[in-house]
């Protein structure tokens, strides 16, 4: 069985700053991490690998060359290898174009039975790429999965929905997006780290995927960002400073009473 795990490199939470002048986000490579939910996806793949014979786990990522680090980390945690999609042609891709590239990569890997990824990434938070890849590949998808049971030709999943859980069975190959509760991600080991350092991970460009530049990047993206702005938050705020007189709390109670709340 071959499992592809999609991992996205994202900024560590302390690592995103806004330029106060321009309002543009400043990103640095240092301090990047694997998207936390993708770590859960990876752990789930490794769990399956531990429980069955003949499971191969491959980490697939798309991003700048520095995203190689994320793939190496996945290898250090126990993945058998991986591939990085990188190059000019991919820059500026929206979720559809990203899904197109990743779907092509999964096809090229060949014989992938199961695709796993996090339900969303902490930077974009769209949660769209996974299902879009499934649609592009024409395979079934299950989202928000917190429990996964693998058989030879099907998976049984439990997905978290409003007010409860849904249990669904889908045939393989399939794509599954996972939530945090599915497992507790492990750690890379020293032997894994050393192995990852020496591992050769191929880098594929648009040509390798047989995709034309029109299908990727900004050209292949149906959506456009019109503008980015700091939100105007508009409420007139009555501000009081806490002191030791109890005044602020009294004002609050009066305010709430005026609004007929408490």
């Amino acid at each position: 069985m071959r499992i592809a795990v999609l991992i996205k490199q994202v900024p560590g939470t302390d690592n995103v700053k806004m330029d106060p002048e321009t309002g543009v986000m400043i990103r640095t490579n240092k301090g990047n991490i694997i998207n936390p939910l993708d770590e859960n996806a990876l752990e789930e793949a490794l769990r399956i690998k531990r429980s069955r014979e003949d499971v191969q786990v491959l980490a697939v990522s798309m991003g700048p060359e520095s995203a190689m680090k994320a793939i190496k980390e996945a290898v250090a945690m126990g993945a058998d290898g991986g591939v990085l999609l990188s190059g000019r042609a991919f820059a500026g891709s929206d979720t559809i174009a990203t899904a197109r590239a990743l779907a092509a990569a999964i096809s090229k890997l060949g014989d992938v039975n199961l695709v796993l990824c996090g339900e969303r990434a902490t930077d974009g938070e769209t949660g769209q790429t996974g299902p879009m890849i499934a649609a592009t590949l024409g395979i079934p998808v299950q989202t928000y999965v917190q429990r996964l049971e693998v058989a030879d030709d099907a998976v049984k999943v439990e997905r978290v929905v409003e007010g409860g859980f849904e249990q669904v069975k889908v045939q393989l190959p399939a794509l599954i997006t996972v939530v945090k509760g599915i497992n507790e991600p492990g750690f890379p080991t020293l032997t894994g780290k050393v192995r990852a350092r020496d591992a050769v991970v191929p880098v594929w460009g648009a040509d390798d995927l047989g995709l034309s530049p029109e299908e990727l990047g900004l050209k292949g993206s149906p959506t456009r960002v019109v503008k980015i702005f700091s939100p105007k938050l508009s409420r007139s705020t009555l501000l009081h400073r806490q002191d030791n007189t109890g005044r602020a709390v009294n004002e609050l109670l009066k305010f709430l009473a005026d609004r007929d709340i408490v």
Binding site: G12, T13, I33, I34, F187, T189, L190
Partner: peptide, 8 residues
């Protein structure tokens, strides 16, 4: 020996 070299 588990190794952690990034924030998460």
């Amino acid at each position: 020996v588990f190794v952690a070299d990034n924030k998460s």
